[in-house]
Write a protein that binds this DNA or RNA. Structure first.
Lengths: 341, 341
DNA sequence: TTGTATGCGTTATCAC
DNA sequence: GTGATAACGCATACAA
């Protein structure tokens, strides 16, 4: 190996390795002169303390892992960006893991992260339907963990969520105010906690306005584009709703496509509102009314909570919960006017 | 520390650490019985070989770094997904670095990656305008590097690109065939190699069809949404183009917004085509004609090239170049018909 | 302020 | 087939 290391740098400077080491840590006392001499030479020889050796010594990795169900989704990419920003400020690196909504991958990732590779985990979960007690099996050795958006209710740990119940309630109410009487609710997985909370807001809003809740109007979709296309078209033709509330952006898109195909006019025949962080929602045809979550801020807050835990500023038995507000942005897809643009 | 390590596992089983170690590597000879006994106990105690110790020993990290200009962009998130998939298959982990298009961050990331943290780098560059010779300063110690999409022409290393010249030529020709006579070209940074290549296709297509190239029709935009909005509105009102070709998806969105504000009808008054990987381009108002790059495949191929290098299957002096084809998908934003929708 | 010695957790080499 | 030991590169306790 011709590569540089602390020993060679020490030799080149006729110093000991400990002095070199000190030059790279802030705390230790070392004369400014030698420190500068060392740093200069280090730069010249392109030396950097080996990350793995340092971390082995210090028992921490300055790395956090981010686990998300998908990447090609505006919400998650924005959230990750937020996490990235905060992590970078704190000198941390970020490992990315995508589960593709597969529970097994999630379990696998988490398990393999418990080998020192990461100091903490920020996750939006994928396996609500499954046994997620696996997280408790790590006992006190479990890495600091922060949930965001999609959480496991029964795992005690810090979390950043939005007020989904409220938003759903208001969204449904908005549709009602725009004249909708038969509002379908499209969800990816009814059993997901996020689906349940959002659904409850929908149900309660119906109740408040004296509209009978019909279970058939809950349309359970999947992660497959093709399947959803069929499901949604069936729902539209058979149930004949005059409003659709989708719990995920993807389902709003699918609804749009279905309406194009079926010649259903939005918002004339059908009004659509959706959870979505899409920045170009105003450019859709028609522009989409959205419940927009503060994705970037969610990421930042999640990272903030994790760093608090890493700094031992959080009582383990008192996980923190941050609840952020989403905004309903009304656009043409729920306009009471019949004519589209 | 109550945490588990190889020594404690060895004690618990009354075996030596070497035997334990062997159970976790594939090659060494070890009796099946003890191996299974070890793995079982390991699972029970939740033991995994410490990543940092292993990597310090083996001098590799099983980690690759991905550096991109931005995340909240369909192209990059799809590309990263592709990289992720291939990396995972090979048992590698992924570190993400976002430069926000800042050259300094890029240099900083790269420099700090040369401490063993990553075995290789996949990057779409941000600093074309600057001195990127810094990459050569590492000499033979430079980490294996693969460029994708945005590259430095003068750095010799493997790369995955699309045939931008061709696509631009065809895109421009398409606008001409739809009746455009004054086609503006919107670019983020003229000096970027990717901007230049794409621009040349535009210029040559004009030439082929006997249209005079006007430099004023090249509109140099920035990364700021507000600035671009002003720039584009000015360009539309002053230059009065009847077609716009944008080199980045973001500029097409900005053009749409500008047209909404200025009451310019697309495609009636102005036809728009853009490089874009947006999956919902059909849902825009009007649906957007795109040059769509195979983003996921680009990511997969880039990862593939990197692993080839890591396996020493690439001659260092013979970097590989993969050129993929983009597809032009014609939609309403370039329709010859006057009426939208 | 600087140097010496030790150990972080693992794996490879060499014995047995 | 298994065990003892050195070494990976670094950071700290302690000595000087």
């Amino acid at each position: 190996m011709d590569s540089i290391n602390i020993k060679k740098l020490a030799q080149a400077l006729k110093l000991s390795t400990s002095t070199i080491s000190r030059a790279f840590r802030d705390n230790s006392d070392i004369s400014i002169a030698t420190k500068e001499r060392i740093l200069a030479k280090a730069k010249e020889l392109n030396y950097q303390p080996n990350h793995y050796a340092s971390n082995l010594r210090e028992q921490k990795s300055k790395t956090i892992a981010v686990i998300v169900p998908e990447l090609a989704n505006n919400y998650f990419s924005q959230a990750i960006h937020g996490i990235e920003r905060v992590a970078r400020e704190n000198g941390y690196h970020i490992l990315i893991y995508v589960t593709d909504d597969e529970y097994k991958k999630e379990v696998n990732f988490i398990r393999h992260l418990h080998n020192g590779r990461a100091d903490g985990i920020i996750m939006s979960v994928s396996g609500e339907g499954n046994d997620h007690n696996y997280l408790n099996k790590f006992g006190p050795k479990r890495l600091p963990l922060v949930f965001f958006d999609r959480i496991y209710e029964d795992i005690e740990t810090s979390r950043v969520i939005t007020n989904d119940y409220n938003s759903s309630f208001l969204a449904t109410e908005h549709l009602i105010e725009q004249g909708c009487k038969r509002i379908a609710y499209l969800v990816v997985n009814k059993s997901l906690s996020i689906g349940k909370t959002r659904m409850q807001g929908y149900i309660d809003a119906l109740g408040k306005h004296g509209i009978q809740y019909e279970e058939s109007l809950i349309v359970d979709c999947s992660n497959s584009y093709e399947e959803n296309s069929i499901t949604i078209k069936q729902a539209l033709t058979q149930l004949k709703p005059d409003g659709v509330f989708t719990s995920v952006e993807r389902l709003a898109f699918a609804t749009y496509y279905a309406c194009y195909d079926l010649n259903i006019s939005i918002p004339g025949d059908l009004k659509v509102i959706s959870f979505s962080s899409l920045e170009i929602a105003p450019l859709l045809n028609p522009s989409l009314t959205t419940i927009t979550q503060p994705a970037t801020e969610i990421g930042e807050q999640a990272a903030g909570l994790l760093f608090k835990m890493l700094d031992n500023k959080t009582d383990e038995n008192q996980p923190e919960e941050v609840i952020l507000e989403s905004k309903i942005i009304i656009r043409n897809s729920t306009s009471a006017a019949i004519k589209t643009h």
